[in-house]
């Protein structure tokens, strides 16, 4: 499969259309089961608060997976991701009462050999940055 976006059609500085997603407790329970990460801080509010967190927090890798969806939906081919890196800068706190809304943005920062581009990605809750990521993706 090849990406649906052509290398020659993009330029450094181009932005990926911003996107938002919601996280609820159910998403964390499902992620725990599918990934095998059953750390109590991701589903037990009492425990999370006991270890000094404001509430249950999302798995960093759950956030990374959502950012991964953002970049693969943009380029059109999940198999085109050559490198994917994420730094978890702040926890994604998920209360029981209401979903947490996370916004994702991206920008092409470098054009590389072999039709690849480096995309800088960021996830935030309001003004609070929660993940700083980067993907190298091979375009068509």
């Amino acid at each position: 499969m090849t990406a649906s976006i052509g290398y020659s059609d993009v330029a450094v500085g181009d932005e990926v259309k911003p996107w938002t997603y919601k996280v609820e407790r159910i998403n964390l329970v499902m992620y725990a089961g599918a990934s095998g990460d059953f750390n109590f801080i991701h589903w037990n509010e009492q425990f999370a608060k006991m270890v000094g967190l404001p509430n249950v927090i999302a798995h960093g890798m759950q956030t990374m997976a959502r950012v991964g969806e953002y970049v693969t939906a943009w380029c059109g081919d999940p198999g085109a991701v050559l490198k994917f890196k994420t730094r978890f800068t702040s926890p994604v706190v998920v209360a029981n009462e209401a979903p947490t809304e996370v916004s994702v943005t991206g920008k092409i920062v470098e054009k590389l050999d072999g039709n690849a581009v480096r995309v800088e990605l960021s996830a935030a809750i309001g003004e609070l940055n929660v993940a700083a990521a980067e993907a190298v993706v091979r375009l068509a």
């Binding site: 499969m1 997603y21 998403n27 499902m30 992620y31 089961g33 599918a34 990934s35 890798m61 759950q62 990374m64 997976a65 959502r66 991964g68 969806e69 693969t72 939906a73 081919d77 999940p78 198999g79 991701v81 994917f84 993907a135």
Partner: peptide
């Protein structure tokens, strides 16, 4: 679980049509 049901993760035929020998996994 991650909320990303791209057909190449879900459906063998879609993955084959996209040129993969079988369904592929998300990058993470």
């Amino acid at each position: 679980a991650i909320g990303d049901q791209n057909p190449v993760y879900m459906d063998e035929e879609a993955a084959k049509a996209a040129g993969y020998p079988d369904i592929i996994a998300p990058p993470t």
